[in-house]
Design a binder for these strands. Structure first.
Lengths: 117, 117
DNA sequence: CGGTATCCCGGGCGATACTG
DNA sequence: CAGTATCGCCCGGGATACCG
């Protein structure tokens, strides 16, 4: 088998990059991962930090990320309730990619001159 | 100024990761970048390699990527016409990120056990 | 060969109100 | 405090036909 052979994509999902983007992409997953890389956060903390994100969307997004196995949800049986979200080991393994993407945007997007290559 | 201060996101666009995902994300940009990292390709070649992608969508996506400055379009004044697409220097600078994302999907998505962390 | 033009659909995303 | 329920919109993505 030729390792350099160009593959045929009968579906976008066959691309390994797409598989990863499906997990870290979408409108709100990037900022959430970026925040949780600094440490665990409560639901309300996330809401206050990203105030423009609707509660339902935050809740739904966190569930998706939990289902993907990149974050962990820990509920404390207290009154009032407290729920803490943190990255799983799988989520932590994204740190290098996230850091590189952050650096790439600083170097290639912020303050870029249109038409520049 | 505290470098470790947690930022407030009044918009998703303020996240540096989002800025990068906007350039490399979407349904078809990942496979196109992944292919062009192996070398330049003609329009028809891309179409044959990703046959499920509608021509209009391929055309539109390539234009967006050209506008973002990550690919270059070279038209040869021949009959029949020939157009070659290749990564710009800025596109090439994504290689490490793409490679890491490809490896990440191999290690964490393909053949993963549901529920595993 | 390498595209545009036109029309269209589904789902990601969201605003608001309510609840254990 | 930490969520659900309900309702709805926008737009990325797409099928088909046509053009230089």
């Amino acid at each position: 088998m030729d390792e350099k052979k160009i593959p045929n994509y009968h579906s976008a999902d066959e691309c390994p990059i797409t598989a990863t983007i499906d997990v870290i992409g979408g409108k709100w997953k990037p900022p959430i991962i970026w925040l949780l890389l600094k440490g665990p956060m409560r639901f309300g903390e996330l809401h206050k930090t990203i105030p423009t994100m609707a509660l339902k969307v935050l809740s739904r997004t966190l569930k998706e990320m939990e289902a993907d196995g990149i974050i962990k949800r820990k509920a404390f049986p207290e009154i009032p309730p407290r729920v803490e979200y943190s990255l799983s080991r799988k989520g932590e393994s994204l740190r290098q990619i996230m850091t590189l993407m952050s650096e790439w945007s600083r170097e290639h997007i912020i303050n870029q001159v249109p038409g520049e290559q």
